[in-house]
Design a protein around this nucleic acid. Structure first.
Lengths: 230, 230
DNA sequence: GTCTATAAATAGATAGAC
DNA sequence: GTCTATCTATTTATAGAC
């Protein structure tokens, strides 16, 4: 029986044996730098120091291996969402914390994060469904539930769609990551150099809004200078 | 003298002559479906019904043509930003209107929008700078100014970074577009099927925030059901 | 030159021994 | 779990006819 059958479409399983781990590591590198199609299982086997057949023992197919790479890439953020949901603190603190950590994860694993985003961008109906179910569903669910619980506790507005808010939370980090090479050269976008500060400010806007009307409700309107915090 | 020298790094110029237009149209198609490197200028010339030399007359280089394609792709959104800045209405209405139009533009020009996002995602320092200056700077500047004016008029909080808010406004539309094939299959993300509604709801969150504390300041808290509006 | 036919190489995947 | 050997389908290169 294939070890990968234990996955149930969920998280990675590479911790089980060293061969699978090294296969996954090499796959991450090759898929990242050469793309899916240009990567051959033969080269992959060679570099990982295992036989081709052994790869197919651990992963049913090339596509399965690719999905495993993406699951691994999202592992930490998924973990963060589980912790955040289980932990204490206000919904605001928890979500803001996730935003910061999610952004950090992507920046700390640049190549594989780009691989995931590339796949999302190029995916049509079929692959989109696969990605949703195998890579993102679990984490997204946790995020949506966290928002929904925040509403139930009276911390968040009850008249917003929790899934939409969750989508919004993910979007800011992703766009920061993927657009930073460009944003760095746009006037006024100095915030791009400080991810933690960015996450904090975005959280401010998401929670408090940016209308002037709400000013009196806000905790502590910081001074106009924006850089050098953290 | 090259016609493209009239660009000054700004908007497109294809309206000037029919040959340039057809070149641009074919380039858009080829670059979209085959990618930058896989597209040959010979094939492009053939399909556009012009000589290769004629292409280089209108566009200095292959790269220049590529940039022109991306400028054209962003033309409508750039135009929208100019109109929005010149027009009347509250800052909130104007920005919400742009978000809706921006999203529509991308969805109505799927292939070329994906091409632009692909380029942004894969761009390193050099190409990032180029994209910023040649494709995005002008529009982004308008958006930032619109936000800043909103602050000056007392409509928006003065303690947020206008460029960061502008960045946020772009990010939501982009992520909706690029992730919709995946989002369609995530539980609760039914909002993905109605772009106008999505833009409106996101604007709500961005302006009013999603904290419960501000509920009394909001115009009209809609009923909990989310679908089937517009 | 252009085309077809065929050879050679390589792709992903499987079988069965150890 | 891991291997060698093998299978089948493409892809790529080459030969030779036209």
């Amino acid at each position: 029986m294939h070890p990968s059958e234990h996955q149930h479409g969920g998280a990675g399983h590479a911790g089980s044996c060293p061969a699978a781990e090294s296969i996954l590591a090499v796959a991450e590198q090759l898929f990242s730098e050469k793309g899916y199609e240009a990567t051959s299982m033969s080269e992959l086997a060679q570099r990982a120091g295992v036989s081709k057949a052994n790869i197919f023992h651990h992963f049913h197919s090339k596509r399965e291996l690719y999905l495993a790479v993406m699951q691994a890439a999202c592992k930490d953020s998924r973990q963060a969402l589980l912790e955040i949901r289980a932990g204490n603190g206000s919904t605001r603190e928890r979500l803001a914390g996730f935003m910061r950590r999610h952004l950090r994860n992507m920046l700390d694993n640049e190549e594989v994060s780009r691989l995931v985003l590339r796949e999302v961008l190029e995916s049509g109906p079929e692959r989109g469904r696969e990605l949703a179910g195998r890579v993102f569903a679990e984490g997204f669910q946790q995020l949506v539930e966290t928002v929904r619980e925040g509403q139930e506790r009276g911390e968040l507005r009850p008249d917003t769609d929790p899934a939409l808010v969750a989508h919004l939370i993910i979007s800011t980090g992703v766009f920061f990551f993927q657009g930073r090479a460009v944003a760095r050269h746009l006037h006024g976008a100095g915030f791009i150099e400080d991810p933690d500060d960015y996450a904090a400010q975005v959280a401010d806007v998401l929670f408090d809004g940016c209308l002037a009307a709400h000013a009196e409700n806000r905790p502590a309107p910081r001074p106009p200078e924006r850089k050098g915090r953290r």
